[in-house]
Design a protein around this nucleic acid. Structure first.
Length: 197
DNA sequence: TGTTGGATCAACT
DNA sequence: GTTGATCCAACAC
């Protein structure tokens, strides 16, 4: 726990999306909301690559909503879905290439009390084993769209810990492009949203 | 200007 | 296993 955190540099996000997605497993997501700092270790992500991915928001072209995905990597893309939930994405690759990594699941590390307060409905359910829940726990909304992940408010870091095994599978909850195995997760974690191969 | 459907979650049966 | 909650953006007219 005393391991030194290294904030991921811009270059990390500018690499091929699938590589970034795989490397994000085991990294730490940190969010500073002016009061408390919350952090969680990523255990599940999915890649969305505009060019040949019909499930990606950017597939149909650039719009006001997905604008950030077309920009330079290393920015947040938060969108609202199903009228109730936000999902957090990390934009990847260079300017003009639309791609992002959806954060689906994470293990809470710090600021758990803040997460519970944000979530309001503690219950026996896990706080962060799903994209919508994760955003609710962190208090992320569309207001956090387009944040620079190399800044101080929202960013990702490496604590030097290596995940023993990373598995991949088809993505979840989409209806197009389901043949692509672009979901990466840590099979040893209880915080993955679902087990599929 | 109106309609429709979505990268979800939780509460039911 | 199925369904309701509920907002925004894309598309058709």
């Amino acid at each position: 726990m005393k391991a030194r955190l290294t904030k991921l540099p811009r270059e990390f996000y500018l690499r091929p999306t699938l590589q970034v997605a795989r490397d994000l497993i085991g990294k730490i997501l940190i969010f500073n909301d002016n009061k408390k700092i919350m952090s969680a270790r990523l255990v599940e992500v999915e890649a969305y690559i505009g060019r040949d991915d019909p499930a990606c928001h950017a597939f149909v072209g650039k719009t006001e909503r997905n604008e950030v995905m077309f920009g330079t990597g290393g920015f947040s893309y938060v969108y609202f879905i199903y009228g109730m939930y936000n999902c957090l994405n990390v934009v990847t690759e260079r300017d003009g290439f639309p791609a992002a990594v959806l954060i689906r699941g994470a293990e809470p590390l710090g600021g758990i009390e803040s997460m519970k307060r944000n979530y309001k409905n503690p219950g026996k359910n896990l706080l962060t084993n799903g994209p919508g829940k994760l955003c609710k726990a962190f208090g992320l909304t569309r207001e956090h769209n387009g944040l620079d992940l190399t800044g101080g408010q929202l960013y990702l870091a490496d604590d030097g810990k290596r995940v023993e095994k990373i598995e991949c599978s088809v993505r979840i909850g989409i209806k197009k492009g389901v043949d692509k195995k672009w979901r990466f997760f840590d099979p040893a974690s209880p915080y993955i949203s679902k087990i599929i191969r």
